[in-house]
């Protein structure tokens, strides 16, 4: 008799538990997707600046940056980011020199120095893994973004080929633009782009 009562009690508790669990899951008290988040954005144009950058090489670097505290002793977070660096020349500074006194006659197109144009980290794709949740402050994402840009700047400096490729491409581009034209004007001219 006692045994039967215990069985009924255990089964009743199990059924009640299942009903409560179903109710909790259905109404979002358990296993929900987290809080509902709503984002509204506004953009307003502030200023337009003239530039003349001919970019001829692009360096893509997707990596993980380590973010430390101010003393560089405690690791706060790993931040995964997608970055791009572009390099090229200032198009408005291209110069030329024509030498008719030598044989063959020569046109020299002088390109300005290759420079890094932009270091871009896609701030909308940075992902974080914190070593301790206390480091995740409201201002942390800005700190992480700045440090990811610095990390990318350091990485690109190690790439010896990058500026070399940018220069070669700049030479090819301007040569491709000018050569057919000058050859049509006077085929005696030799073109050098440097």
């Amino acid at each position: 008799m006692r045994k039967k009562i215990w069985i009924i009690v255990i089964i009743s508790i199990a059924v009640l538990g299942a009903v409560l669990l179903t109710f909790a899951v259905k109404n979002g008290y358990l296993f929900n997707d987290g809080p509902s988040i709503n984002v509204i954005c506004e953009s307003s144009l502030r200023e337009v600046v003239n530039v003349s950058k001919l970019s001829t090489a692009e360096y893509t670097y997707n990596s993980v940056a380590k973010i430390y505290d101010k003393d560089k002793k405690v690791l706060k977070c790993h931040a995964k980011y997608n970055g791009t660096v572009t390099a090229g020349i200032d198009f408005s500074k291209i110069d030329y020199d024509i030498d008719d006194d030598i044989t063959p006659k020569k046109i020299t197109i002088i390109l300005p120095a290759i420079e890094i144009h932009d270091v871009i980290v896609d701030s909308g794709t940075i992902d974080y893994i914190f070593t301790n949740s206390k480091y995740e402050t409201d201002e942390f994402s800005q700190e992480a973004y700045t440090l990811c840009i610095e990390d990318l700047g350091v990485k690109v400096k190690r790439q010896d080929d990058f500026l070399k490729i940018a220069k070669e491409n700049a030479v090819k581009t301007i040569d491709g633009l000018v050569s057919p034209w000058v050859n049509q004007i006077d085929s005696e001219y030799v073109i050098e782009v440097k």
């Binding site: 984002v39 200023e47 893509t60 990058f162």
Partner: peptide, 23 residues
């Protein structure tokens, strides 16, 4: 790390600055 260098040929002539607010 994934890194790649590729050739491009883009002439940038304007840079427009925006003030953005995300709520």
């Amino acid at each position: 790390a994934v890194e790649q260098i590729r050739s491009i040929c883009k002439l940038a002539t304007l840079e427009s600055y925006y003030n953005n607010v995300a709520e």
